[in-house]
């Protein structure tokens, strides 16, 4: 699929709606193995991102992502600020000066974003972090451009649920060691909403 400026704005808007309505749930996940700030932080970051990009008139998709990145970095207090900020910043640089983004360019951008998250958080797959959702989704999108919205949602959802079985070795949850088993990682949950929202844009075939 192609991603236009308008699509990218809808992507963030959909994600924001989802995160606003799941704010309490995200907080409860973070309460179990963290510092209970994920819901509030993500809700703040996405709301302010939407406010920011709704005002702007954009020529390039990269500028939408850059504004999202900057907002995430300065408005989100927890680890998700630098992590989502880095992800969108990498995505933005990877797709610079292009509109719309074709499938290949967009997926390469997401791959860069994933690598950014891994570097920033010094995390790899299997450590009960957002990487556990990002990596399988990027792998799926990399396979072909015939991926359906359902496949994206299913892959992200399964990946998020799988974090339940993992022991946290990164972030605040790592202090809980084995006690972290049985809980979904909050960052993987917010990442699921992000990709679920992308799938929603995907489904409309760029006619969001």
């Amino acid at each position: 699929m192609e991603l236009t400026v308008q699509d990218s704005i809808y992507w963030i808007k959909f994600a924001n709606e989802r995160i606003q309505s799941e704010k309490e749930y995200l907080t409860s996940l973070d309460q179990a193995i963290g510092d209970s700030d994920h819901g509030i932080n993500m809700a703040r970051g996405f709301q302010q991102s939407v406010n920011k990009i709704s005002d702007g008139s954009y020529v390039h998709v990269s500028d939408v992502f850059k504004d999202v990145a900057m907002t995430m970095m300065s408005k989100v207090g927890g680890a998700s600020g630098p992590l989502y900020g880095t992800a969108f910043l990498r995505l933005s640089s990877a797709v610079k000066e292009k509109n719309p983004l074709d499938h290949k360019v967009f997926v390469e951008g997401l791959e860069d974003a994933l690598n950014g998250i891994k570097q920033r958080g010094k995390a790899n797959k299997g450590e009960k972090t957002m990487v556990d959702v990002w990596e399988p989704v990027v792998t799926l999108l990399n396979k072909n451009n015939e991926v359906t919205a359902e496949e994206i949602v299913n892959t992200a959802k399964e990946a998020m649920e799988h974090t339940k079985k993992l022991v946290a070795t990164k972030g605040r949850a790592s202090y809980f060691k084995e006690k972290s088993i049985g809980h979904i990682d909050p960052g993987s949950a917010s990442s699921f909403y992000l990709f679920e929202s992308l799938a929603k844009v995907w489904k409309s075939g760029g006619q969001a």
Partner: peptide
């Protein structure tokens, strides 16, 4: 100190 402090500091 801990966690996100390091990531934000690195940025």
């Amino acid at each position: 100190d801990i966690g996100s402090a390091k990531m934000n500091a690195e940025m």
